[in-house]
Amino acid sequence: MGNLIKVLSRDIDNSGGNFFLDFENAQPSSTEKAVWEKVNRVLTEAQVVLDGLQGYTGAGEEIRQAIQSPNEEGVQEKAWSAVLPLVTKLKNFYEFSHKLEGSLRCLLDVLTSPDAPPTQQLEHKQALARQFALILHFTLRFDELKMTIPAIQNDFSYYRRTISRMRINNVWADADNEVNNELANRMSLFYASATPMLKTLSDGTSKFVSDNPNVPVENTTDCLSTMACVCKVMLETPEYRSRFTSDETVLFCLRVMVGVIILYDHVHPAGAFVKTSNIDMKGCIRLLQEQPASSVEGLLNALRYTTKHLNEDTTPKHIRNMLQSEQRF
């Protein structure tokens, strides 16, 4: 566990070797290969999903014209033709969230195994720890983008209204492209969340704990708190931070740190904000507030609005004040 101990104690590795949790270059060992390949297929699809979300333009103009001209069939058909492929895309995003949750649970199953303490699991399975981090990075990135695209909910709401009207009138409905009521309800709940992917992973992590009573909850919370601690130390220690090959790795680490804090807060009985927490929340929040506001406002909002215990009486007042304040440290 040498690398881990060095990072957590800020003891720089003078031999020039890689430090703990090499998010840029960790490669799977033979024992990690099977799980790594399974998760990698999902991560490859994740980039396609992210590209699709970034290119999402919506059908706002077509919908506006359709609402203004309710009796013009050509205008209605044009809006429907514009919305239908977008709904298919939204369906694909929703279905992918469950693939992502499955991959996260797969990694948790390995990284919280009782065969060794979580610290050793992370130390010896860095390629899988990196994949865990990549899932969180994608999740925070997806949710940050989703919050900037109000067209998503507008398009889906129009689709649901239109398909309901089409069923009643039995006109030009293509059943093969239809999202049924049950799926539409689930998709509506998914997109109604400010951070839908993060909520999916938080719920999935909580379910992982409840579905595995033979695995002490501490195995999961220790895994998450250790990752948060390592991210924080790597970011605030110049000798470690200088080893990053790009500025994007800094934001990557910040997203991972916030992601594991939120998961920890959902599965630890007392949450991440209590004085006895294994996560230095004051230090993590301060570190975020030291970054350019444009880079981290979404991450601060994720802590404000998607954690479970922030507003409970057990949260120290100064922690709540830090997140409520716009002051930059």
Rank of each mutant, 00 (worst) to 15 (best):
E248R: 14
T162Q: 08
F142V: 04
A26T: 10
Q76I: 09
D211K: 08
Q47Y: 12
V49W: 03
A127P: 13
Q121Y: 10
A293S: 12
D222I: 09
P316L: 02
T226Y: 05
S69I: 02
I63L: 07
G55N: 13
L4E: 09
F138Y: 11
C284Y: 01
V83P: 03
E24D: 14
T306K: 06
T306H: 09
I279M: 10
Q291G: 08
E178G: 03
P292W: 05
T245N: 12
K99S: 15
T237M: 07
T276G: 04
S103P: 12
Q289K: 13
Y240E: 12
R165T: 07
A66K: 00
D109W: 09
I149L: 14
S29D: 15
A82N: 09
I319Y: 00
L4C: 08
G74M: 06
G74V: 04
A129R: 07
R328K: 08
N181D: 14
E24M: 13
T31G: 15
T226P: 08
L288Y: 04
L145E: 14
V230K: 04
R161T: 00
R105G: 15
Q120S: 13
S164D: 01
V7F: 02
V258M: 10
Q68E: 07
C106E: 15
Y56L: 14
L90C: 06
G17L: 06
F96V: 02
R320F: 09
A184F: 10
K38N: 15
R64D: 13
C229M: 05
Q47H: 12
M322W: 00
N25K: 11
A129E: 11
P114Y: 00
F93K: 00
M281P: 07
K91T: 03
